[in-house]
Write a protein that binds this DNA or RNA. Structure first.
Length: 433
RNA sequence: GGCCCCAUCGUUCAGCGGUUAGGACACUAGGUUUUCAUCCUGGUAACACGGGUUCGAUUCCCGUUGGGGUCACCA
């Protein structure tokens, strides 16, 4: 039997990471077992399901590399089938009509629970049971004639031949009802796996209201889809050994539902950031270069010569793509901005500008302006003048880059070249002394 | 409140009767003979509590406490 899993979000607003983690586990399980991963868009709530929401959902999945094996099923087109199935349940005595609560809204169709205890084996939580007394009949078709989630969800899982329903912990209570529905419908009951919730810093599960947990936001913040995928996969699951930064294939190979933890996990943005940095470091130089060029192009900057040397320097210190522009602008243009705090902190005393002048003279006299020569000259200068590196390097860095931190200064100067370095030092002296 | 689930460092993932309770992130001390970052080395830090079972419990059972889910003509 081919294993078929699915991700069935309702596109009402943005997808948050809790939902997306469920999608990831579904995808991983399907890939691990050589099965199929499907998408079903539960867009029956016409007022809240917008084309825009559907588009961002698809984009997010694409960004995370969650490819599907069949065309997405849009639940709204299946309404007639849902209603037909409800009529059939009515005919077979598994459901009845009632003006529930006597609201006068008309009659709705209510599913009759079998009156027996229900038990199932959850692949992550183990045996789950519920006694008949704790389960009540429930509405499957509203008095306005539209199907309710439980009916539509089960029917569509049957339609898509889903064998493993992997979803959030908040659905465990529904599962008992759904199992009753499968049986009444004469359909095979799939296996279930309920994933622990991902909770926010306040200890609450993420909801549509958690503004900072939308999947798309991580993309705009400069994270990589692969890194987020990797991080989320490790929330509630581990390969059983100490691997953390893993390739897609390694995760697929190691993944299993029975090793998923059953307690909630809190997301740690700092570890995500660290992991993204690991992905940056693991990039091939060409890929990193392409990414940098694209970023810089957004503000109409081109990197000149020495690009390879600059990228090599930067690949060691960038954690997310949004750091590229601030870190690299000064390589591209003389018209960079000075970090105001750096100026106030480091360019205070008059003698600093004298020192800067002397350094300019020294660098001027250099014949070879390579890293080694510059480094040697700077060291000698510090020594001969009885200074400390802290007196010399920070001001010099600010003069050439506008910033108080950055890569090793000697290679930076060498890459910039004598002419630019001297010009920038003079400009800095003229402007701030 | 009823029913259900969960409980190891600040966070996360290991540990599945006998361990100096481990890794990672974060934090921190140092090193890589200049800063920041990377990298390397070290450090601080956890089995919620109480009963059992057992020669022996972080591990198994029960209870307490704490947290979460769910009880809709939402999904």
């Amino acid at each position: 039997m081919t294993i078929r899993t699915r991700f069935a979000p309702s596109p009402t607003g943005h997808v948050h990471i809790g939902n997306m983690r469920a999608a990831i586990f579904n995808w991983l399980y399907a890939r691990h077992t050589g099965g199929q991963f499907l998408l079903r868009v539960e867009d029956t709530d016409r007022e809240r399901s917008t084309p825009e929401a559907i588009r961002t959902l698809l984009e997010a999945m694409n960004w995370l590399g969650l490819n599907v094996d069949e065309e997405p099923l849009y639940q709204s087109i299946r309404m007639d089938d849902h209603i037909a199935a409800a009529e059939k349940l009515l005919a077979t005595g598994h459901a009845y009509k009632e003006d529930k609560g006597g609201t006068g809204q008309g009659e709705c169709i209510i599913f009759k629970m079998p009156g027996t205890d229900i038990e199932f084996i959850d692949l992550v939580k183990g045996t789950m049971k519920k006694s008949a007394a704790d389960m009540a009949d429930f509405v499957i078709v509203r008095s306005n004639g539209t199907p309710v989630f439980h009916l539509a969800n089960v029917l569509d899982d049957i339609e898509q031949k889903i064998t493993h329903v992997i979803r959030g912990d908040d659905h465990v209570e529904n599962t008992f009802r759904h199992i009753a529905l499968y049986k009444a419908l004469g359909a095979p009951v799939p296996r279930f796996a309920h994933l622990p919730m991902i909770i926010n810093a306040q200890g609450k599960p993420y909801s549509k209201r958690d503004g900072d947990a939308f999947v798309g936001d991580f993309q705009t913040k400069g994270f990589f889809g692969d890194a987020l995928f990797n991080y989320l996969a490790l929330l509630g699951w581990s390969p059983g050994d100490e691997r953390e930064v893993m390739t897609r294939q390694e995760m697929i190979d190691a993944f299993d539902l029975v090793t998923v933890r059953s307690s909630p996990a809190q997301m740690d943005p700092r570890k995500l950031l660290w992991m993204n940095g690991e992905y940056v470091r693991a990039m091939r130089p060409v890929e990193f270069a392409t990414m940098c060029r694209e970023e810089l192009r957004t503000i109409h900057l081109e990197i000149g010569e020495n690009a390879a040397a600059i990228f090599a320097l930067m690949q060691e210190r960038i954690k997310i793509s949004t750091e590229i522009i601030p870190a690299m602008t000064f390589f591209c243009t003389d018209d960079f901005e000075y970090d105001q705090k750096a100026i106030e902190k480091k360019l205070t005393k008059p003698e600093i500008f004298q020192t800067l002048g002397k350094i300019a003279g020294l660098l001027q006299s250099l014949e070879n302006f390579d890293t080694e020569a510059v480094n040697l000259a700077l060291h000698n200068f510090v020594e001969q003048n009885g200074l400390k590196f802290g007196d010399v390097m920070p001001p010099l860095r600010i003069a050439v880059s506008g910033q108080q931190s950055g890569p090793d200064l000697a290679p930076v100067l060498a890459i910039l070249g004598k002419e630019k370095v001297l010009a920038r030092i003079q400009k800095t002296i003229a402007r701030f002394s």
